[in-house]
Design a protein around this nucleic acid. Sequence first.
RNA 1: GGUCCCAUCGUCUAGCGGCCUAGGACGCCUCCCUUUCAAGGAGGUAGCACGGGUUCAAAUCCCGUUGGGACUGCCA
Length: 496
Amino acid sequence: MPERGHFHLRGLRRSSLTPRVRFAPSPTGYFHVGSARTSLFNWLYARQHGGTFVLRIEDTDAERGREEWLEGIITAMAWLGLEADEGPFRQSSFEPRHRELADKLYESGYLYACDCTRDAIDERTKDRKTPGYDGYCRDRGVARSATTGLRFRTPDAGETVVHDIIRGDVSFPHEAMEDFMAVKSSGAPLFPLANMIDDREMEISHVIRGEDLLPTAPKQILMWQALNEIDRDLPLPSYAHLPMLVNEQRKKLSKRKDPVAVESYRDKGYLPQAFVNYLALLGWAPKGDEEMLTLDQLVEQFELSDVNHAPAFFDIAKMTHINGEYIRAMDVDEFIAASQPWMEPLADAWAPADHEIPWTPEQFDEDKWRAIAPMVQERITMLSEIPAMVDFLFLENPRFDEAAVTKVLVNDADAERILEQAIAAFTDAEFQAEALHGLLTSLSESMDLKLRKTQAPIRVALTGSSVGPPLFESMVILGRDEVLRRLNAALVVARG
RNA sequence: GGUCCCAUCGUCUAGCGGCCUAGGACGCCUCCCUUUCAAGGAGGUAGCACGGGUUCAAAUCCCGUUGGGACUGCCA
């Protein structure tokens, strides 16, 4: 069923309404979670309608665009599974066309030259109720020069209506619309113009972007219509403005204060499927009660017109929970493969940033890791948590948690006899989890202690921590000799 | 200040006039399971911002108020 907004495409010669959408990020050094969501929604829309997903990098800000950042965007999108059908195109490469059309708009009178400085405008308008450009140069006939920008002559009356697939019709009265700057004094168009020209040239049918761009939509529509008069006559795209992603203060996510880099979530060990799944749940919800959805299911169920209007809080706690679910849902081999970058990163493969591995490559033991992996899998929510949980298997000596040592080895009067008896019992025990379990259980009974009490000093002695994977399984993986050696070392500590 | 957007549990949301005694999920709390921690199981906590209409009937429609937010640059 065609949703609201599709009527714009009536009479269009574009082949049978197949949509062409685009994701147009500006390169800023990392991939923003908001961009990821916008990208995802565009991709989903294209996929479910058999359309085309175009990637266009808006790199016209000379100071900002850096070569390696393009790679960052593509890498992050590939990680999320959002490959573009066309592109990446660089907006900067279309600048000749931008200038050509800007000139045409100027020659046709849609744009006029303005030599006002910001200070002069502010000075003139400081006492007015309505700040913004006052139209000073509108009819002054200022000659275009290297110091004049070009402003768009907005209509005096009437209004421009943005037909938004998500929000319905949004009207902007021209009366309140200033003659905005469209072309820099350098002759290069500003974002609203350049962005719109590219959408025309690429015959984009649906502009799906953040709500922060809703106020620029009427400007772009006005200029689009102007170009329809003097250049090609092209149908307006449909618009869909996605609600903002906000922080706990309900403000737009800030690159300064909020953790917005997609790369950092990858580094922490969020799985792309989980990340995408969570992103899809921000501003949209599936029909049923099941919210764990694969990319394929999202393509099937996603509905752009059902997207919410209100801003959504980017809740890392919920995303982390979903990530844990995905981790537990993997089979062990998948889990081991996925965790490799955090365990034994390959020399020329991707490795997480800010991640320290406590053991050396020589100390790492693949067999031990495989043996304990299933138990680790159901205890973590992020892959980066793994090393701290298994390092005792690979290190010469466990990294001791001082608080735990003090509590269960030093300050606990029972620690000494528990360790002594455990050593005696384990020395010629069958080293198998069930057997060890039974052995310590009966040993506890003979000492009139709870098993939870007797396992504590042993756990700290072997792993350095009072929390961790199941103890008896860990003992088997560690082996009798090592278990006895560590218990004896702990006994020395317990005896003070 | 101006223009625009928005408003259901703390959070993400379902709900599109009667099925709502407002459903699910995260979080939080309790209990069960249990060798720690998790996981899992069973419960619980908590919401229609407010005020007017319209209607036999409103979380759902309309208006207003309040409260959030975005934009307001020769950045994109």
